[in-house]
């Protein structure tokens, strides 16, 4: 069945951390909020006081409680390359460089986030508990 590999991946996620240094939630929060880094709030609601209501996007699902819904492995897969779950997703791949068209020279061959930033971001997202 065509979807099988993707589905298997969806269940498993990416269990192996990208770095040896454990993610730091405080740094990860900066990655989520900073518009030069993860810039998550451009599309998602993030329940942090730094982003007042109305100053976040609503393209993607709210990240409120995401730490209760998804495991570290599942979050990692969604951040590293969400197209492995849904080829039509609008969410960029934050730690992949393949399959892109006409990337601006200064970003060519580079990932949006570093491996450590991805791990920090996961640590932060896991602190967002609740329904």
């Amino acid at each position: 069945m065509l979807l099988a590999p993707g589905m298997a991946l969806a269940q498993a996620g990416i269990a192996q951390p990208l770095t040896d240094v454990p993610g730091d939630a405080t740094r990860g929060k900066a990655v989520a909020v900073n518009s030069d880094l993860g810039n998550c709030s451009i599309c998602h609601h993030i329940p942090v006081p730094e982003i007042p209501d109305g100053a976040n996007g609503d393209i993607g699902p709210p990240l409120d409680g995401v730490g209760s819904r998804l495991t570290a492995a599942e979050l990692r897969q969604r951040i590293v390359n969400p197209t492995t779950l849904d080829p039509n997703t609008l969410m960029p791949a934050y730690f992949a460089t393949e399959g892109l068209t006409r990337v601006q020279t200064k970003y060519a061959g580079k990932t949006i986030l570093t491996a450590q930033q991805v791990e920090d971001l996961i640590a932060f997202l896991l602190t967002l508990k609740g329904n």
Partner: peptide, 22 residues
């Protein structure tokens, strides 16, 4: 296109009326 891998249509057709940040 681009590192963010978005087409014009992704935002301006599929999500017109939604919000990027505020």
């Amino acid at each position: 296109r681009g590192q963010l891998n978005l087409s014009c249509a992704n935002c301006h057709e599929q999500h017109a009326g939604d919000h990027l940040r505020g």
